[in-house]
Every structure is written in C-alpha cells, then in structure tokens.
C-alpha cells in the first residue's frame, strides 16, 4: 500500500511541480515588465496597470482561477483552453502567472524605488547609459533587497498550487484525497504534507544560500 500511495503522490507532485516551476518561469519576467509599467511616467500606461494589480491582489486566486477557466466559455461561447487535462493546466497556469506576476511586480517596484537617487546620479555623472545603469548598478542592489519577500511569495506559491484543484487540475492533494474514497485511509493526506514540507524546506535553504551569497555588500 505504502508503495502505491507513494507512487500516486509522486505523480500528483509532478503536476504540482510543473505548475509551480512554469508559474515562476513566466511570472518573474512578466512581473518585472509590469513593475516598469506601474512606474511609468505615462498615465495611460501606469493607471490601467495599477488598476489591474489592485484587482488581482484584492481578489482571491481561487476566484480568478474559476473566472479564467469558465469565463471564456461563457463570454465567448467557446472554450479557448482546449480540452482535457492539458486545457485545465493551461488555464490554471494562466491564472497563476497573472496573479503571481502582479505580486512580484509590487515587490520589484518596492525594490527599485528603494534604491537611493544618488546611485542614479552617480551613474549619470559617470556617463553610464540608462541600460548600463540599470544592469550594472541598480539590478543587483534590487535583487539583494527583494530576495526575502520573493522567497516568501515563492513558498506561498508552493502551497497555492493546490488551489488549482477547483478546476480539476490533478495535483498532489487531489491524489492523496482519492485514497479516502477508494481505500478509506487518511494517512496519504498527511503524507502529502511531508512533500510540501520537504519542498518548501529545500526552497528555504536555497533562498538562504542566495541571501548569504549577496551578503558581501551592504
């Protein structure tokens, strides 16, 4: 039994991992773009972006998942997500990417805006271009400042992936829960907790390592 459960949970955990890693892959760069938009001097760019961020951060991810999954079918009259498991996955990923990109963008914005004006001015009088200033001077200082909040979000994301089950995306808890019905045992659910704990423990170590690596400057 233990082996069967382990195997099933691993299968579920692969789904969790896939959603987790692809969400990070797309939402981090998208978040950076959104943060630039939200700091733009052009109001027609900045205001709509701020509005979207406000909506996304102000409503539950669960709700966003449902709307993104069912919305197109109801409003457009057709399912844009494709059918079956892969369709549900795409919908879930889309919702997660949008949601997390908005959270990340606020972290990026806070980090970028916390860099003292003097750093930009020093770069300017030294003749650095804006791109050089961003990549050579600002970026690493921003990264150093945002590693702790990003690490919090990433660990939250590990757990948030379980929300995707509302649109029947098979992840680890879904797999664990099946054993209640099929075999009348609950310990597989506790077992899923072990997966989460180990994985978030690993991430905590990884972020701790990055923080330490960036400790060489203040």
């Amino acid at each position: 039994m233990f082996a069967t459960v382990t195997l099933a949970l691993f299968k579920g955990f692969l789904g969790t991992l896939k959603l987790f890693s692809l969400t990070l892959l797309f939402s981090l760069p998208l978040g950076l773009l959104i943060s630039f938009g939200s700091m733009s001097k052009t109001a027609i760019l900045r205001l709509p972006i701020r509005l979207i961020i406000w909506i996304i951060r102000g409503t539950p991810l669960m709700l966003q998942l449902l709307i993104i999954f069912y919305g197109p079918g109801i409003f457009l009259g057709r399912n844009i997500w494709g059918s079956g498991d892969s369709g549900r996955f795409t919908a879930a990923l889309t919702a997660f990417v949008i949601n997390y990109a908005c959270y990340f963008s606020e972290i990026f914005r806070g980090g970028i805006q916390s860099i003292p004006k003097g750093q930009y001015e020093a770069a300017q009088v030294l003749g650095l271009s804006r791109t050089q200033t961003f990549f050579r001077i600002i970026l690493l200082q921003v990264i150093k400042r945002i590693v702790p909040p990003i690490s919090n979000e990433v660990i939250t994301l590990v757990k948030d992936t379980s929300l995707a089950r509302v649109i029947a995306f098979y992840e680890i808890i879904w797999e664990g829960e099946r054993f209640i019905k099929s075999s009348g045992i609950i310990w597989p659910l506790f077992y899923t907790g072990v997966f989460y704990l180990l994985f978030s423990g690993l991430l905590t170590l990884l972020f701790g390592y990055i923080e330490k690596k960036l400790d060489y400057f203040k």
């Binding site: 003097g118 001015e121 020093a122 030294l126 650095l128 690493l140 060489y216 400057f217």
Partner: peptide
C-alpha cells in the same frame, strides 16, 4: 556631462563593487 566630474556629499559609491571596481567601472564602459 563628460566635461564635469562630481563628488557628492553622500559619496554615492556603488555598494556591490570594491573600491577598485568603483573606479574602473566607468572608464571600462
């Protein structure tokens, strides 16, 4: 701006670079 150098009240050194790298950065670029 090339004609002027500027030393600020608050130094504004780049914290992630060593003293030497702070000096070499702009000439290298």
């Amino acid at each position: 701006r090339r004609h002027f150098g500027m030393v600020f009240q608050q130094f504004n050194l780049f914290p992630q670079y060593t003293a030497l790298e702070n000096v070499t950065l702009a000439p290298r670029l």
